[in-house]
Design a protein around this nucleic acid. Structure first.
Ligand code: ZN
Ligand code: ZN
Ligand code: ZN
Ligand code: ZN
Lengths: 164, 164
DNA sequence: TGTACAAATGTTATATATTAACGCAAAGCA
DNA sequence: TGCTTTGCGTTAATATATAACATTTGTACA
């Protein structure tokens, strides 16, 4: 489970990614149990594939993987699983990449906001209400009622900058 | 030309849209002349079609229009014009809609940020540095260097809210 | 003015992304 | 058990975007 404050928005150097995936799936199991949602085999496997790394995953890469495993899989197979996972808040779509990332933030009140490193392609969510608040203030000036935010910040993460 | 402050981020009631388009094209002509860029007939026409209203325009709608006018036009015709216009900063892509809008903001220092009404589909740019600053602060906490922002806020504009 | 090079466009084909529609099967419920 | 909902398999279509190569147009310069 990632920290939500400080310097470890991106994974820390000693990141135990196996545990990271297990945690994400456990949280998904718990959340679905709690809400009476059915995390079926396909849906769970798609979620696991998305958590395979911290990079955005493309629908057709998921399709290839699922197809290789099960023999039969078509676009609807993966898009339906994605719809479910998006609806449940277990994954997010990165619009600027047409790709999907796992969500570990549990941002009930806020909207997801991403930092995306264009070198290593890792993605992290921006925590906290500061950005949402700034946007809310600007929207209010125009009498605009916000109900969805797509915020995807591209750049270079600390580790990639250090690796020059 | 839209105001960049106050309540007229979206077009005001008396908005003279013919003048609005003429202004946008005149600014494009001037900018291209100044930078030695070639605003060819196709590019200029695509820009004009995009400015036809304040809604995001889809590439294939542009293609239909161009194709109807000239007889010959294929996807590269319009995508190449869009590449040029994007590069020149004359239009922006709305990633969450796969569509394009004209830019009138001239935000040299900042990044484009959009309010998108899901009822009337009109789009306005959020002016000023407040949102960028909030994002810069959050990025800095993670040691992240920002070089691009995709900020697309969906909701209901004042006029649509008033028209209930 | 003619030629040489680069930029822009035409053209065909393909890659990538997403959804529609329909029928069957499994799961949940009375 | 029978009924109903939900999920899934399958086929096809639609939507979005790019690759590759030929041809034309514009521009610079001998
Ligand atoms: Zn991890
Ligand atoms: Zn990085
Ligand atoms: Zn206008
Ligand atoms: Zn509106």
């Amino acid at each position: 489970m990632s920290d939500t404050f400080g310097q470890t928005v991106f994974e820390a150097p000693g990141h135990d990614h196996d545990a990271c995936i297990r945690g994400a799936l456990a949280r998904a199991d718990a959340l679905c149990a709690e809400r009476g949602l059915r995390l079926t085999a396909i849906r769970r496997r798609v979620l696991e594939l998305i958590w395979d790394n911290h990079r955005p995953t493309k629908a057709y890469d998921l399709l290839s993987a699922i197809s290789a495993e099960r023999g039969n899989a078509a676009p609807p197979t993966v898009y339906r699983a994605l719809d479910f996972l998006l609806e449940a808040g277990l994954v997010h779509k990165i619009e600027s990449l047409n790709a999907f990332v796992g969500c570990d933030a549990g941002h009930e009140r806020g909207h997801p906001k991403f930092l995306i490193c264009r070198r290593c392609e890792h993605v992290a969510e921006i925590p906290g209400p500061a950005v949402d608040s700034a946007i809310a203030r600007e929207a209010e000036r125009s009498g605009f009622t916000v109900d969805h935010e797509t915020i995807e910040i591209g750049g270079i993460c600390r580790r990639c900058a250090a690796a020059d």
